[in-house]
Write a protein that binds this DNA or RNA. Structure first.
Lengths: 343, 343
DNA sequence: ACCAGCACTTAAAGCGCTTTAAGCGGTGTT
DNA sequence: AACACCGCTTAAAGCGCTTTAAGTGCTGGT
């Protein structure tokens, strides 16, 4: 069924079969073959069968670059990721399945230490991606707006203020609110927050913490320590808490990584978690599920975010939607072993 | 100067400028512009400057698909990754820089639960990648050999027996050997191994353990527990060790994740690490560097592997090398806090 | 004056596909 | 008999580039 000439490819060989070869084999025009292979209605059933058979026999594979050029459609969605992020890896996984369902393919481009966001995006554009799905972009809103004029941009995970483009994210403030509710429900009142620095996401989570505390009448218990998104920051914050001599009964970290740093610092100093202090993270990293951490955290519904992002892109590309849309999903609390009633 | 109809692009933009637009602007042919833009010698300095200026003014970006089609070269390396692997993420990072240095671009394709290796590879081929860099491929050697006839294949991290294709990997047996040497040097004799199952890599590491033990005259101390590459497996093995009532003084795990599982089980049962038992991992995951683990492990030289893989591809593509090559790098021991002299 | 040679430049033919308008034989209608 | 129409097929014109062979207009040597 599948037989390539003799030795093809790499070393000295038969070129890959073209549409024309398939056409010649069945004595039809390339036009007909093209129609059949793309499933366009028109060709008769008999023609259809013969073409499919010939294509299979030759091992024909359409050349994306050529068809993209001819059709002026690449059916490609560009995805910018940070290959180091476990959460984004999960998103990518779901993006693939979502894209496949609507007949699009994905091209991935990652930022690295030496490869910035704009390089990653330019690469995507050079591939002629029709839309850009950016996971946690950090570029200013104006830059993203500019980009959106070249191809529809969907920002995933980051709220964009002042730019008219699509956003899919989960309600970070709400997520933190649920954490605080959970802790208050357990009887905690001295609840501190180790924040994530100056980013948009950190701002939202900080706000969520503040307003939840107020909602529970704990205004005077609001206590925010500075941090960022790394384990080191969490560890540092943990040490500061201990040195302060005034341990809260619960700490809400910016994310799981920070929470893990916190855990390390606290337990390292002999503080029992969750006995003496409860700790909560954010993101539901693979890490946090690990037996040794068993962290209470918030899940961001990766699958749903991925699906929504793809849908948003398709609406822009195939359904002519032009008005931007912000989709905010409700995150969900995942209670594990680092939270308990205060002593 | 440039004003096509009304709304084109994403939301009403002008279509992207083509080579022809640049040419028209400077009153030259597209041929000249093409030459200048690709840095081919020929055009005069004056022409060169004018073209570059015009291209910049128009914001011209070459269309990869068109040039790939015309030149029959995509200058694309296809990289298959498992987006969930932290180690592979690091490899990707270095692959980007290495590829850039030699004028190639990367296209990433990942496997997921619903997207197998062959799908990932077909995607790469459909993009017309000229060579395939597969990170830890699991397909049988025969399939990879078949693939190699379509485009040069470079297997990274996995030894391939019986197929004539390029391999870049580190010497797994040697790496484990160094671990054992280190432990023996500290005075350990009862050294157990929690293996990684049936894969090629696990086999190599197990062999490395066995032969190192023999080399040190510890044949009768060889003790292998069954495991795989997950934390769960490590945890299970840890429990079995404890239940056996015969704790070794050191355990060499298949990888860091397994080692972390081990740590959890041991410490959870009140066993002091490294006081009572030393634990060693493999891979030098970001995880293992974390303060709370501080795991002694083996580094696989991601950067070097990445560079070598790209070089191998370039040799195949641009220098006509046809004989396969296996590049085996020496891994290096990273001593951290989970190993100490036995009590 | 003639030609060779040089330094540039370009017309034109694709690359492998899609797409449009036109072509074809046959059926049904008037 | 003339016509429209239908289901199917295809010729041909690109898509935005690269590349090759063929020009240009020079200079300088004879």
């Amino acid at each position: 069924m599948e037989e390539l000439g003799s030795d093809a490819g790499a070393n000295g060989a038969t070129p890959r079969p073209r549409l024309e070869d398939v056409a010649a084999r069945v004595g039809l025009s390339t036009a007909s073959v093209s129609l059949v292979l793309r499933g366009v209605p028109g060709p008769s059933e008999r023609t259809r069968q013969r073409v499919l058979k010939a294509a299979a026999e030759l091992g024909y594979r359409p050349d994306r670059t050529a068809s993209a050029l001819a059709s002026r459609r690449s059916r490609l969605l560009g995805v910018m990721i940070d290959v180091h992020s476990a959460f984004q890896a999960e998103l990518v996984e779901h993006l693939y399945t979502a894209a496949e369902e609507v007949g699009y393919d994905l091209v991935l481009s990652t930022q690295t230490r030496t490869r910035d966001e704009s390089t990653a995006v330019e690469t995507l554009l050079a591939f002629r991606c029709e839309a850009l799905i950016l996971l946690g972009p950090v570029a200013p809103a104006s830059v993203l707006a500019e980009l959106d004029r070249r191809a529809p941009v969907i920002s995933v995970g980051r709220r964009i203020t002042g730019a008219d483009l699509d956003v899919v994210r989960s309600a970070d403030d709400d997520g933190v609110g649920r954490i605080v509710d959970h802790l208050v429900g357990l009887g905690h009142r001295a609840i501190a927050h180790v924040d994530g620095g100056k980013g948009v996401i950190a701002t939202d989570r900080r706000r969520g913490y503040r307003s939840a505390m107020r909602r529970h009448g704990l205004d005077d218990r609001i206590r925010i320590l500075h941090g960022d998104h790394t384990e080191e920051a969490g560890e540092g914050a943990g040490r500061r808490l201990i040195e302060s001599g005034d341990l809260p009964t619960a700490v809400v970290a910016f994310n799981d990584r920070s929470a893990i740093g916190l855990l390390t610092a606290l337990r390292g100093a002999g503080v029992d978690v969750p006995g003496t202090v409860s700790v909560v993270g954010y993101d539901d990293d693979t890490l946090s599920r690990l037996g040794c951490f068993d962290l209470t955290t918030v899940s961001q519904e990766a699958e749903e975010q991925a699906r929504r992002a793809v849908v948003a892109a398709v609406e822009r590309l195939d359904q002519g939607r032009v008005t931007p849309r912000e989709i905010v999903l409700a995150p969900s609390l995942v209670v594990r072993g680092t939270t308990a009633r205060p002593r």
